[in-house]
Design a protein around this nucleic acid. Structure first.
Lengths: 231, 231
DNA sequence: ACCGTTATTTGAACACGTTCAAATTCTTCT
DNA sequence: AGAAGAATTTGAACGTGTTCAAATAACGGT
């Protein structure tokens, strides 16, 4: 397993072994507290104290409280990649691959359900470094899209080339939508999200099949042209 | 035109004429400042000062800074309703009605583009009173969905009943998506959003047509069943 | 081993959102 | 008109995220 290199999005990279340790300690403490108490309830002072550093020191490594979330983002993505690997290695059907990868995602983030809301809180704030389309989120977003490309291209599904090229981005969007739903899902064991996943993956598979039909070509072209427009 | 009754979502309803004036003054000042400087840059103290009241007084009428947004939400929705009326009265084609209503929406919120980001910032925070699925947003959401139902039912489009029943909710979701895009759109005159609107409305019309095809019945049923599941 | 430079760490300060008990004003009833 | 009660308004206080100048520690070259 490759060293779980932190994403490049965190601003103050430590330039000394000791600095690295301090930084890791802060992040670890923060994620623990977030998991236990939630985001709003966790104060920067508590994080600093828990990590055994001064308040200002925490800000030396993380530009803001939000940037701690960014780090969390990168970390769970890494875990998701690792959890997805066996599925992608063993499954060849598109539906199974997509379902497996999505389930892996939910399993990865489940421990953080209480505080995950905040992760997307800034999704629509163009000023925030956090929103999924921001430059700072770029690397993680690209990797996540690449994962979806792997889901598609590693499968046995037959697809017109234009759709094949664009589908990963669409699946990434879909995956964001599912997470949005998951955040609001308080049913036991996230049953509702599981149900949604099951049904939506089935629908996507069917929809993709239909979209591949030659009769659909004009519509498909129009849709893809629109996606091109807004990229 | 009915009195532009404020939505019921703001907690401290004034019980005296004078109270009503104060409340209105605060809201007016807040929206002005939001428009001029943006949300984060506007402080509650500045709002209070601008409205000529004390800081605590502002909190007597608005439970929090976020609740001022809720009020904004209700207000622009009212304006949108009014701007939509002539379109709904004059157009009968589904496409024209949808496009008209969506354009009206964008025109209504355009002055607030700078600060609208914040409006959706809490879209994914289940704790926030602001997110579109919250109880406090319920009334506005229902009214907006009703508007979409009016778009559909007042048009000449032919639709299977099951789809007709669900389509308004889908269009509401679509409308949220467009706004999300609009928030991030910094192109001159929001050209990119306009382009997206044009193309997406066209696609929706086509898609709805296709979905109505008898051959699509099984897929449509599956899709609607899923929507039922997650309602 | 020393010194300049760079990296890290500190603690105090600031501005902001929010709360609340107390003061004031308004309304209503007699 | 006056008193009791309700609605409104105030201002000070608290806790939070964030900033920053200054102090300390680590490093690299000589």
């Amino acid at each position: 397993m490759a060293a779980p290199k932190e994403t490049s999005t965190d601003l103050a990279a430590p330039k000394t072994p000791k600095g690295g340790e301090t930084r890791a300690r802060i992040l670890e403490t923060a994620l623990d507290l977030f998991r236990e108490r939630g985001y709003e309830e966790t104060t920067m002072r508590a994080i600093a104290e828990g990590a055994g550093v001064s308040l200002g020191n925490a800000y030396y490594y993380f530009k803001s409280k939000e940037h701690l979330i960014q780090a969390f983002y990168g970390r769970t993505h890494q875990e998701h990649l690792e959890a997805s690997a066996p599925i992608l290695a063993s499954q060849s059907a598109f539906k199974a691959r997509l379902l497996g990868v999505m389930n892996a995602k939910l399993a990865t983030i489940e421990p953080y359900h209480r505080f995950a809301g905040i992760l997307f809180k800034s999704a629509a704030d163009p000023e925030s470094p956090l929103h999924p389309f921001s430059k700072e989120s770029g690397p993680v977003r690209d990797e996540a899209t690449a994962l979806m490309r792997e889901v598609v291209d590693g499968s046995t599904i037959k697809l017109p080339d234009d759709l094949r090229a664009e589908l990963p981005r669409l699946l990434w969007l879909y995956h964001m939508g599912v997470i949005l739903f998951w955040i609001h899902d308080t049913s036991p064991k996230r049953q509702r999200t599981r149900k949604l996943l099951e049904m939506s993956v089935e629908l996507i598979a069917r929809g993709v099949g239909i979209a591949g039909n030659p009769l659909m070509r004009p519509v498909r072209r129009a849709a893809l042209r629109m996606l091109e427009e807004i990229k």
